[in-house]
């Protein structure tokens, strides 16, 4: 993989200036997740709109590599204004296309951490289905 593709400007921009960074106190849905390979951590907080269905606000905090944090930052922009059920069904490729860089299997886990945590949060709050690949994350509780 060409070096410049991996850390293209948009990734570095999201990493250095993450969108949706922060915490929502008393959030309607929240979850934490960790990538055990490298110790990346992400917590996600969701606030639903008046219909109790549409994602009105979403914030995250975490620490980790540029890929995990930038991808989560991009994710917050992608999901705002969409319905919980739609996000529960959102294929991972939709996010990966947005991230737009070729990723090795290990880095794929970094890029998908935020999406997994968001799906867990929605699953817990709304009972939306949680695909098997993320089922294990539902058991995690970070201290």
């Amino acid at each position: 993989m060409a070096f410049d593709e991996m850390y293209r400007e948009v990734i570095l921009d999201h990493y250095k200036n993450p969108r949706g960074h922060g915490v929502i106190e008393g959030a309607d849905a929240e979850a934490d997740g960790q990538n055990p390979l490298c110790g990346d951590e992400v917590s996600i907080y969701v606030q639903f709109g008046a219909d109790n269905e549409t994602i009105e606000d979403v914030k995250f905090r975490g620490r980790g590599c540029a890929i995990s944090q930038a991808a989560t930052s991009m994710l917050t922009e992608m999901v705002t204004g969409r319905k919980a059920t739609a996000i529960a069904e959102m294929p991972r490729d939709e996010l990966l296309e947005e991230v737009g860089i070729p990723l090795s299997p290990v880095r794929l886990k970094c890029a998908l951490l935020g999406l997994g945590v968001l799906k867990v949060a929605l699953h817990r709050a709304k009972g939306t289905p949680l695909p098997e690949e993320w089922a294990g994350m539902d058991e995690l509780k970070l201290t």
Binding site: M1, F3, M6, Y7, C38, D40, R63, G64, C65, A66, I67, S68, R107, C110
Partner: peptide, 18 residues
């Protein structure tokens, strides 16, 4: 982040663990 350090090093053919 160490993962990014290791990735950039890896692209240069330098194998380290992060």
């Amino acid at each position: 982040h160490p993962h990014d350090v290791a990735q950039i090093l890896g692209n240069e053919g330098v194998a380290v663990r992060a």
